[in-house]
Computed example of a mutant assay.
Amino acid sequence: MASNELLRAGDPAPVRIINPGGASPFLLLGDHAGNLVPAALGDLGLPPEELARHIGWDIGIGDLGPMLAEALDAVFVRQTYSRLVIDCNRDPARADAMPEVSDLTVIPGNRGLTDDDRVARVAAIQTPYQTAIGAEIARRDAAGQGTILVSLHSFTPAMQRVPRPWEVGVLHDGGDTTFAHALLHAFRADPALTVGDNEPYSMDAIDYTIPLHAYPARRPYAEIEVRQDLIGTMEGCSDWSASLAVALRAAEASIARR
């Protein structure tokens, strides 16, 4: 399937930019904010409840991101399609960028993909998403506007029946980790929170978006993970948007003083 055949006239664009031109230094990213499937791929052989659960997207981020963008006057660049179509936070050359199995669920529509099939998904979805992020960073650089990259993700309350006690986690690895550590400190100022430092996931060679856009130029960044049961409703998203805005501003002020 050629890349120009994957997305049809009725399919939504693969990337949306919320609050374009926002004045905040924060550039919010949503690698897994959507769970749609292009019409050409049907439903990937999955019932709706599978696409709706955590294997299909980061639950809550599609609602949390715009709220946080408004609270901070930040730009939010978000991806539209399910991570099962293509995971935009993976190197497209990796097998798990288009997984055949996710959390024990077989993905029939990802079985036996040809090289052309994979190229089509990259060209139609991942490349436009990553290009949009790069273009926004370039626009800000040209305007003399600073950028702090903040990638928004969510995680399941339990994995393989093992409870996860953290409400929020901050992921970091290479590049300039100063902001990520300042954000950890800001979250830990609230004694009611159990905060994960590279928990429940660690940022490593598997991650793609932040390393691509933040590491080479040593741009400040953080990847935030919020537990899904806390942002599964609009009320929860609103509450966490307010909490995240406070912590992000505190971390920004902290690094500005150094």
Rank of each mutant, 00 (worst) to 15 (best):
A74K: 01
D115L: 12
A39E: 12
Y201F: 15
E50I: 12
D173A: 12
D141M: 04
I133K: 00
L84P: 04
T131Y: 00
G232Q: 12
S24N: 03
W166R: 05
S202Q: 14
G196S: 11
R164T: 00
A214N: 04
A33H: 02
E223L: 15
I61N: 03
C237P: 02
E70S: 07
M203L: 15
N4I: 07
P92V: 13
L84Q: 03
H181P: 05
G42R: 00
T131I: 01
P211A: 05
V119N: 10
R8V: 14
A74F: 00
L64N: 05
P128E: 11
N35P: 06
S254F: 08
L72F: 04
R164L: 04
P108Q: 08
Y201W: 14
A71M: 03
G146C: 02
L193A: 14
P38W: 01
G175C: 02
V246K: 10
G65Q: 02
T177F: 00
G34P: 09
V168F: 01
S243W: 04
F26S: 02
I18P: 11
I255H: 03
E70N: 05
P128L: 06
E225Y: 08
F187Q: 07
V15P: 15
A256H: 08
A69C: 06
P191A: 07
G196C: 11
A123E: 15
E252M: 07
S241I: 07
I18F: 15
T127S: 08
G34I: 09
V85N: 02
E235W: 00
V226A: 01
R8D: 11
Y215T: 15
G62N: 04
A180P: 15
D239S: 08
D96P: 08
L248A: 03
L7W: 12
N4C: 12
D11Y: 13
G109H: 12
A9V: 15
I17R: 13
Y208F: 15
I86N: 00
A132V: 14
T194R: 11
G196H: 06
A242W: 06
A97Q: 04
D197F: 10
S243Y: 07
D197G: 06
H213W: 15
I61M: 10
V246G: 05
V170M: 00
A52T: 10
T147F: 02
S254Q: 11
A93L: 13
I137C: 03
D58R: 05
M159P: 09
N35V: 02
D63C: 09
G174D: 14
I86Q: 00
L184A: 13
N110E: 10
G34S: 06
L230F: 01
M234L: 12
G30Y: 12
F76N: 04
G34C: 06
R121F: 03
A138P: 03
M203Y: 09
P25F: 00
R188T: 13
T147K: 07
P163R: 05
A97K: 02
W166G: 04
R16P: 04
P157G: 02
M98Y: 13
D58K: 02
I210G: 10
A40E: 07
D43V: 07
A143S: 11
E167Y: 04
A253Q: 13
T80W: 05
T177S: 00
A182C: 15
S238H: 11
L51E: 05
A132C: 13
L28N: 13
E100F: 00
R78S: 10
T177A: 01
R161A: 11
W240F: 09
G232W: 03
P92W: 11
